[in-house]
């Protein structure tokens, strides 16, 4: 009998899991782009660099949940009401940008200085040096931590349920409450996260092994 309930709610859960994936993808794009901007600003120095540094430290020092509530509830007095899903994408993106900025920075700094100097010597402008010379070489140091970040972002979208954004965890809570089967539904939710995270984790591991080959590993874990 209980199994009928699960079978009935499976389509709902799958739709919710798809929303989780959409939220993950959207927040990842925001974080990846804003993070790159922050990293470049920070390395440029001057007051934009200090501002970027302050943003990174501020965001990395506070819980994502606080940022999420600030974006969703905190902007209401200013007359800005975002839908829960957009608020979650914004907050997770803003939060992730601070992490990825540090990842990019480490990657960019790992590129030998001579590369930049040589490119400038042949007359490339700063923007082009970054785009054609530095960033492509930074990729091996950047991709594995980015993949790991994607996995943690997938799991972090679960906090969006706390502002009632429609995703897997919210749907599971609804169903758990409706049928009073919390253990079953949260285990199912856990299993669905596992199914989504597993391939990503394997991918991240493969990337790590791929780029670790043929060179000494740095202190990153």
């Amino acid at each position: 009998m209980t199994w009928d309930i699960f079978a009935d709610s499976l389509p709902e859960l799958l739709v919710a899991a798809f929303a989780t994936l959409q939220m993950t993808a959207a927040a990842f794009v925001v974080a990846a782009m804003l993070g790159l901007l922050l990293a470049i600003l920070r390395l440029a120095g001057g007051w934009p660099g200090r501002l970027a540094f302050a943003y990174i430290e501020l965001v990395r020092g506070t819980p994502a949940l606080t940022l999420l509530f600030l974006v969703y509830f905190g902007l209401v007095p200013l007359g800005i009401t975002l839908p829960a899903f957009s608020a979650a994408v914004t907050a997770l993106g803003l939060n992730g940008a601070a992490y990825l900025a540090e990842v990019y920075r480490a990657g960019i700094q790992a590129v030998d200085k001579g590369q930049r100097e040589a490119a400038q010597m042949i007359g490339l402008r700063r923007g082009k040096v970054m785009r054609h010379v530095v960033l492509p070489q930074a990729l091996p140091a950047v991709l594995p931590p980015m993949a790991n970040y994607l996995v943690s972002l997938l799991k972090e979208t679960s906090i969006a349920s706390l502002i009632s954004a429609p995703e897997l965890m919210l749907r599971s809570r609804d169903l758990a409450g409706t049928y009073y089967l919390p253990m079953e539904y949260y285990l199912i939710a856990g299993a669905m996260y596992l199914v989504m995270a597993w391939p990503m984790m394997q991918g991240a591991r493969r990337l790590e092994q791929h780029f670790a080959r043929g060179r000494l590993k740095g202190g990153r874990t």
């Binding site: 799991k155 965890m169 919390p182 996260y193 984790m201």
Partner: peptide, 22 residues
């Protein structure tokens, strides 16, 4: 592997709400 692949929020709910069933 399992505990790293599942959100910690889900794990909290299992412990706090799930165990009440037992």
């Amino acid at each position: 592997d399992v505990f790293r692949a599942v959100p910690v929020l889900t794990q909290l709910f299992i412990i706090y709400f799930g165990l009440t069933e037992f």
